[in-house]
Write a protein that binds this DNA or RNA. Structure first.
Lengths: 341, 341
DNA sequence: TAGGTTGTGCGAAACGTTTCGACCACCGTA
DNA sequence: TACGGTGGTCGAAACGTTTCGCACAACCTA
């Protein structure tokens, strides 16, 4: 392990001068600096991050707190991690993957007490999440992927549900549909105040109203079976629904099966949209489903970047909303004739 | 930040004694130890990992080197990460997510030079991968998820392709099939010496032969379209094939579509197996596909654990093979009558 | 009673940085 | 000639641990 002392000796300067020369932290004569830099290069010198962190109180390590892979842990969630890791890496930071234990608060206390990380990246944020408050009080810099009910002046990057809902509604309205139904995430998830579930519910309803579409939004199937049952009940209670947006991959499977059982076809008899699912998943279906793809990696990148910005110096809080990308597949088409309400 | 010095003062002992008491690194009088522990508890003392690491040369941080999400980055790969992170966490270690840049060697050099990590976890290992050699020469402890052609005495955890192929073959043979085809990963992946592609090819062929099944193994479609075309060519050249194992999700989609175009049904006219895909994905299909699910999280856990074992002390190399789990779905059935060869 | 052994605790050094006050030579100016 | 400023460098302290040699008392044994 070659240390700064070796570099200094080889360049015939004091350790402190070598440090200053390499970090350009204070003026050093041009010739000296060159000598030091050459010595460092020749020795393949790498500053020891631990020593540096110990002294400067800054480790350039970020922690991504990710929840236990409880129910379903999708590709989507994982892309937060890879996006954040990439952005961090590009900016000279490292990303620590911290699985959340049974007691998230204790986990946080532990993690931040170690002096190992400069900041924390939160994901899977609930509307009434208590972690942000804890972090604020502890004075630990952090940012969120997702957001609480009232994020105040906390940095966050989240999906723009309003724009996403508008895009979805505009898409089906543009095809001529007059009545839209929306299947939310599972009832449990909704009850747990999971942000996307709550926000999507509100925004889809609002967007439908604004566009003058009739709307049904009170279904929250959490599985393929529940999805199939929900679809049958939907058709019974609202036979005039011609377009359906589903936010749960598995529920969509059930819907598709139920559609087939009924002798119907997609998109001729029903326009089906998949919300918050990756195009990779949408391609698994036949026909290929029209999808509102969440900008997961992008959100991860943004979250990491704004946290790093915050660490560097403090500007105003950054709060970014990014809409889902509408990927039109083969599951959307104008409604069939007979049902025009 | 409360440091060991504070604890020592409050407990009326020297810093070194406090350290010894807390770490039980050398005998300390029972009464003293209790006093120290109580002081530490009252102050909420957390040892500073940086200082500890600087001194002891051990940070208890592992790096997971994960490749850029080039082509497709599946759920499977990501579960390595979460599995490894969990296992590490349970053993008091942390996991650093290190995206691999364009130059993996340089990245490695950089990462290990920093003194930040105790060891490295490699994934996506190619048969002729050069990273293991580099790490061996650098004296950096590491383990692999996957393995090179000749892993020598390096720790690794990998899929047991032989057992997996035997299980798959036994499953279809048990149903009465006489001829099996296998669609490998894409030709590019195969050509790049990606371990799973090469090993699966060899082991499926061997298992089929051993079981006395006729076998076709030279298809490597990399997409839905290619999968469909491959299936059509397969039926043309080998009309007596009644069972097909596919190792690429997207290719499977193409196969299913081609089967439908032909007016056939699954499983009545074709038994279809999905290899190396998660049950979550398999459920997306209709009918639900029989799957050989890779033990991804398990491999991640094993990889982390054996690396930590290696760091603690050195036993013999650990080399673990774990077979895929056969999840029988609705896509496998006895062959239809007419084709019995 | 002298010498050795054991149990317990202390102080100082070390890990590799960064930071900060001090120092020195040199120059321009009064 | 003396003096303040300045650009460049140095040495020492500090960050929070662990480790190691040493000291001291008490106790046992010959």
């Amino acid at each position: 392990m070659t240390s700064l002392r070796h570099v200094a000796e080889r360049a015939q300067v004091a350790v402190s001068t070598a440090s200053a020369a390499l970090n350009r932290t204070r003026p050093v004569a041009e010739a000296t600096r060159r000598r030091v830099e050459q010595a460092a290069a020749e020795l393949g010198y790498r500053p020891n991050l631990l020593a540096r962190g110990l002294q400067s109180k800054r480790t350039r390590i970020l922690a991504l707190l990710f929840p236990a892979p409880h129910s379903g842990f999708g590709l989507t969630e994982m892309q937060f991690a890879t996006g954040a890791a990439e952005a961090a890496s590009e900016l000279g930071y490292h990303l620590l993957l911290s699985p959340e234990s049974a007691d998230p608060m204790e986990e946080l206390r532990h993690l931040t007490g170690l002096g190992l990380v400069d900041g924390v990246l939160l994901m899977e944020v609930r509307l009434d999440d208590e972690r942000p408050e804890f972090l604020s009080e502890s004075g630990v810099p952090f940012s969120m992927i997702g957001r609480t009910r009232d994020p105040g002046s906390i940095d966050y990057a989240d999906i723009d549900f309003a724009a996403t809902a508008r895009d979805a509604v505009a898409h089906v309205a543009g095809l001529g549909h007059r009545k839209l139904a929306f299947f939310n995430l599972s009832g449990d998830t909704y009850a747990a105040q999971y942000g996307p579930a709550i926000r999507a519910a509100a925004e889809f309803a609002a967007a439908a109203e604004e566009a003058g579409l009739a709307y049904v939004g009170d279904f929250r199937p959490g599985s393929a079976e529940a999805g199939g049952r929900a679809f049958e009940r939907l058709m019974q209670e609202h036979p005039d629904v011609t377009a359906l947006a589903v936010m749960d991959d598995h529920a969509a499977v059930g819907v598709i099966a139920a559609v087939a059982r009924r002798g119907w076809r997609i998109p001729e008899d029903l326009t089906l949209l998949l919300v918050l699912s990756s195009a990779r998943v949408a391609e698994m279906f036949h026909p290929r489903l029209t999808t509102l793809e969440p900008p997961s990696a992008e959100l991860g990148r943004l979250g990491a970047r704004m946290l790093i910005d915050r660490l560097q110096g403090d500007g105003p809080p950054q709060q970014r909303l990014v809409p889902c990308r509408l990927v039109v597949g083969d599951s959307s088409a104008p409604p069939r004739e007979g049902v025009m309400a």
